Computed example of a mutant assay.
Amino acid sequence: MASKNVDDRKSMTELEACVLALIALEGPCTAYSIRKQFEESLTSTWRASTGSIYPLIRRLTERGLLTRHDVESDGRGSKEIEATPAGRKAAQSWLKDVPEWVGEPSADPVRTRLNFIRLLAPGDRVPVVEEMMAATQASLDRVEASRDQLAAEGRDFDALTVAGAQHMLRARLDWLEEVRAYYA
């Protein structure tokens, strides 16, 4: 079934559009390789499960945005997936369509939890903030190691993309310093 039109992007979820764009960028790949990339993501939001990736790929295929064909020399019956021309156009349209909400603050479990910190006894607040700082610092360390690894592999643009997470985590640490000072 062919895609109705490029405006299919409007009816795609962010996860569907991201998977479509990843397949369009990576070229022929398997659903398993896509799932592994999401599994290894530094962003918890993009850690999509097998139960979401495989049906999503099936839906995009049914809409004519992806094609699937057998992997030669694979005895397991794996399928390679590619973006169709309509799929590439839909991925490109998704990238070009920048709604206002994209610039909004994203979900942040630290910010959400700290919104309720006044439920804790005053003496319990700073230790919780410090635990959040330690968790953020550990995440920052992983992100910096990932960026260094990508740069060492010559994947400069991927390293630049990871730098966004690095800056966000540093900003969170600065903010947590302010919160700790407030409650100290």
Results as ranks from 00 to 15, higher is better:
residue 9 R to K: 11
residue 42 L to Q: 13
residue 4 K to E: 13
residue 3 S to I: 05
residue 34 I to D: 04
residue 51 G to N: 13
residue 41 S to V: 00
residue 14 E to W: 12
residue 33 S to T: 09
residue 9 R to P: 00
residue 10 K to I: 08
residue 6 V to T: 15
residue 34 I to F: 07
residue 20 L to W: 00
residue 40 E to P: 03
residue 49 S to G: 03
residue 4 K to P: 07
residue 32 Y to G: 10
residue 32 Y to L: 09
residue 25 L to C: 06
residue 16 E to Y: 11
residue 10 K to D: 14
residue 42 L to G: 13
residue 6 V to E: 07
residue 17 A to W: 10
residue 45 T to E: 10
residue 46 W to F: 13
residue 13 T to A: 11
residue 26 E to C: 10
residue 49 S to D: 08
residue 13 T to G: 06
residue 13 T to E: 07
residue 19 V to T: 05
residue 47 R to L: 01
residue 16 E to K: 05
residue 29 C to H: 03
residue 51 G to L: 06
residue 30 T to P: 00
residue 16 E to H: 12
residue 4 K to G: 10
residue 44 S to C: 02
residue 49 S to Q: 05
residue 33 S to P: 00
residue 29 C to W: 04
residue 23 I to R: 03
residue 47 R to E: 06
residue 35 R to K: 15
residue 39 E to G: 09
residue 49 S to T: 12
residue 32 Y to N: 07
residue 23 I to C: 03
residue 42 L to D: 12
residue 16 E to G: 07
residue 40 E to M: 07
residue 40 E to G: 01
residue 36 K to Q: 12
residue 31 A to K: 11
residue 36 K to Y: 05
residue 20 L to T: 04
residue 24 A to W: 00
residue 40 E to K: 12
residue 3 S to E: 02
residue 13 T to D: 08
residue 41 S to P: 02
residue 3 S to K: 04
residue 31 A to G: 15
residue 43 T to F: 06
residue 25 L to Y: 10
residue 16 E to P: 05
residue 6 V to G: 03
residue 18 C to R: 15
residue 41 S to G: 00
residue 12 M to W: 10
residue 44 S to L: 08
residue 51 G to V: 08
residue 12 M to D: 10
residue 46 W to H: 13
residue 38 F to R: 01
residue 45 T to R: 14
residue 22 L to P: 03
residue 12 M to R: 03
residue 17 A to Y: 01
residue 30 T to M: 04
residue 10 K to C: 04
residue 27 G to P: 03
residue 14 E to A: 14
residue 43 T to C: 08
residue 35 R to F: 05
residue 44 S to W: 06
residue 41 S to Q: 09
residue 41 S to I: 05
residue 48 A to W: 13
residue 41 S to H: 02
residue 13 T to N: 09
residue 37 Q to K: 11
residue 11 S to Q: 13
residue 20 L to S: 02
residue 39 E to L: 02
residue 27 G to E: 06
residue 35 R to V: 02
residue 40 E to C: 05
residue 39 E to Y: 03
residue 23 I to L: 09
residue 18 C to P: 00
residue 43 T to V: 09
residue 15 L to F: 12
residue 30 T to I: 01
residue 43 T to L: 11
residue 5 N to A: 14
residue 5 N to C: 09
residue 26 E to D: 13
residue 34 I to L: 14
residue 44 S to H: 10
residue 8 D to A: 15
residue 3 S to A: 14
residue 32 Y to K: 14
residue 9 R to S: 04
residue 31 A to C: 09
residue 35 R to N: 09
residue 36 K to E: 07
residue 14 E to L: 15
residue 38 F to N: 02
residue 33 S to Q: 07
residue 17 A to G: 15
residue 27 G to Y: 05
residue 21 A to R: 14
residue 3 S to Q: 03
residue 12 M to Q: 09
residue 43 T to G: 01
residue 24 A to M: 01
residue 47 R to I: 01
residue 28 P to R: 02
residue 41 S to L: 00
residue 31 A to L: 06
residue 29 C to P: 01
residue 41 S to D: 08
residue 12 M to N: 09
residue 43 T to E: 14
residue 12 M to K: 06
residue 11 S to R: 14
residue 7 D to R: 14
residue 35 R to A: 08
residue 50 T to V: 08
residue 14 E to F: 14
residue 19 V to W: 02
residue 7 D to P: 00
residue 46 W to R: 13
residue 9 R to Q: 10
residue 26 E to I: 04
